[in-house]
Amino acid sequence: MSVYSIKDLEHLSGIKAHTLRIWEQRYGILNPERTDTNIRTYGDEELKLVLNIAILQSRGDFKISEIAKMSDSERSANLLRLSEGNLHFPDQIQALTISMLELNEAMFQQLTKNIIQKHGFEDYLIQIIHPFMLRLGTLWLSGSVGPAQEHFISHLIRQKVIAAIDQQDLSFKPTAKKFLLYLPEGELHEIGLLFANYILRARKHQVIYLGQSLPFEELVLAYDIHQPDYILSVFTSQPNPDDMPDYLEKLVERIPNSKILLTGYQLLALGHEVPEKIHVLRSFQELIELANTN
């Protein structure tokens, strides 16, 4: 079980710590443990409860006194009912977080169905899943999410993106560019690359998708065969920071005639300097604009 401070609950839910303390005293909603120095700590159940409350209360449909009296099943049922209406994007991200923490596939599938029907698949990716994955990264680094929860939700999202790609029309527009997509050797975090695949195919570009953990020499081989206009990769955990400068120099040297597009935590968060020929994508909106103008 994960352990959270009251500040963690505030950060993840948006509800002020002061308000949580009042609710704890007035309604008995939370039952924290206390350390030897009398500091409140909370577990997974308290986090899920606070996320539920944040969604139910933000819509104004329920007072906190009413939410406090609900059972877990009643809160979940009300959350799903609200998701069929007009939940704002932050609330939908909160709801997906709850489905992950509960390992609740039925809830994930229903939420996803409601969101896609209302907003379409691309908005589902850009407005909800992408910020959700950023939150997941924060939760993972803080130890708030375990491997089972991360694997569970990543697998479900990956399935959704692959299914959407399979349904796309594979014809190209006359001005289509050729994009080669890959992940470096050892890199297994594929969802961001699948996002890019979907975005480019939706705009009728040609995509050669090479997927996870590609050895560098195989990348060069594919480049020699296809001579793509662009090479795109997402560096989430690989290459490691010590190897990054050499890897980037090799890319520039061995891939001389393609434009190189890179993104991912290893570049964005660690602040690596990159060779002039490499363009760092800082958002998926940049990729969308590039795809729309070509």
Score class of each variant (00 low, 15 high):
H130P: 00
I165P: 04
F62K: 07
G137C: 03
S142I: 11
L111N: 05
L134S: 13
Y42M: 09
L56P: 01
F132P: 01
I115V: 09
A106P: 02
I93F: 06
I153G: 03
I162T: 03
E102F: 05
H151T: 10
N86Y: 08
S144W: 12
N86G: 03
I39E: 09
A95R: 03
E102V: 04
Q117L: 13
I67A: 09
I67H: 04
G120D: 04
N114W: 00
L111I: 09
F121W: 06
F62C: 02
K118G: 02
K48T: 14
I93Q: 09
R81F: 04
R40E: 10
A95D: 05
T41E: 00
A106F: 13
A164P: 00
G143I: 08
T138Q: 15
Q109C: 07
S144Q: 15
D169A: 04
K63Q: 15
S99I: 07
L125W: 01
L101V: 03
L139I: 05
V50L: 15
G143S: 05
I64L: 10
S73P: 08
I128M: 08
S71A: 02
H151R: 12
F89L: 10
Q149E: 13
A95N: 03
P174M: 10
G43K: 10
R40I: 08
Y42V: 07
N104E: 07
P147Q: 11
K69T: 11
R135Q: 15
N38W: 05
H88Q: 15
Q109N: 14
H119M: 12
N78F: 10
G120R: 07
L156W: 07
L134M: 14
L49Y: 11
M70A: 03
L125C: 02
T97W: 00
E150T: 07
Q117Y: 10
I162F: 02
K173P: 07
G137W: 01
P147I: 12
L87E: 01
L51D: 10
K118P: 04
Y42R: 08
P147V: 12
H151W: 02
H151D: 08
L139Q: 08
K160T: 09
L96M: 13
L170K: 15
N104C: 03
D72M: 12
F62Q: 02
L80F: 08
A164N: 02
H151M: 07
K69Y: 06
D72I: 13
F62V: 00
H119K: 14
L134G: 13
Y42G: 02
H155D: 15
I93N: 06
I55Q: 07
I129P: 01
K173Y: 09
A163I: 07
S171R: 04
I39P: 04
L47Y: 08
G85T: 10
Y42A: 03
D123A: 13
Q110P: 05
N78Q: 15
L47M: 13
P174W: 11
Q168I: 09
H119F: 13
G60T: 00
L141Y: 13
T97Y: 02
